[in-house]
Amino acid sequence: MKALEIHGLRKTYANGLEALKGIDLEVNEGDFRALLGPNGAGKSTTIGIITSLVTKTAGTVLVFGKDIDTELEAAKSYIGLVPQEINFSQFESSLQIVVNQGGYYGVEKHLAYQHAEKYLKKLGLWEKRDHPSRTLSGGLKRRLMIARALVHEPKLLILDEPTAGVDVELRRSMWQFLKEINSQETTIVLTTHYLEEAESLCKDIAIIDKGEIIEDTSIKQLLSQLNIETFILDLRGSLRNPPAIDGYRIQLLDESTLEVDVSKDRSINELFKLLSEKHIEVLSMRNKANRLEELFLRLVENDSNRVGPEESKAEKINAR
């Protein structure tokens, strides 16, 4: 079953801006899908149309088979939305906000209270349930929006940059929570600027730029398109200059840290052997975390400099 099917979705705003140029996207039930794109790419417009906050110009959107044109209420009943901007009453308490949202979805009052308690506790908000929402910190406000979106236990949870402006610790706890929700068969669609977030959470990824989907694949498949992987090596001793080794691009980040680009046709064993020969001892090694970011930037840049529609995206990625 498809949780979400989007076909030929177009949106032209009143000022003439063409935000979406006919996108197609499918999300299977149970997926954890990332929707990536730079600012103004069309991510929030897409989400706005799915949740009926934005009117589409053309195209179809089906949520668990329900067309938003003909069965809007049924389609809406499957969705829980965590928007990008804080959008709850600043004067109501956290508990009231979540319970009211349950009411809007037709959840019986006693059940709405049960669900509110469950999610406010899980998200660390229960102690502050009676505080006016305006007194919550930025991170707690974001978590409150997640609790609110889950109160009717939706089958499709849509999060529009849920961890924007959230500190690392809180972000990771939210990731853990989202993984747990997804493991309970809730389909999740996530837009994010944090590419590490997409890499950590999602199996599949769609990249949107200038109103078009320019890549729609699994993260594994996308990363396999990289010819080069970058590693950070922590050294025992210190160096003044990076060692010169044929076939490897090596930079000295500081006196005891190297950054090494290793192409897929070279082995890491060989690299260690050559380093040992130069009496350089490696204490530890890690992947540079922004692999996906590099790939994303290249995809978006390539899309901007596109010379012809026939040019394969994979070729462009491998052209480095």
């Binding site: 049924a74 809406k76 809007y104």
Partner: peptide, 8 residues
């Protein structure tokens, strides 16, 4: 928006 996204 809380109401607009809900099936009301």
């Amino acid at each position: 928006e809380e109401m607009l996204v809900a099936p009301i």
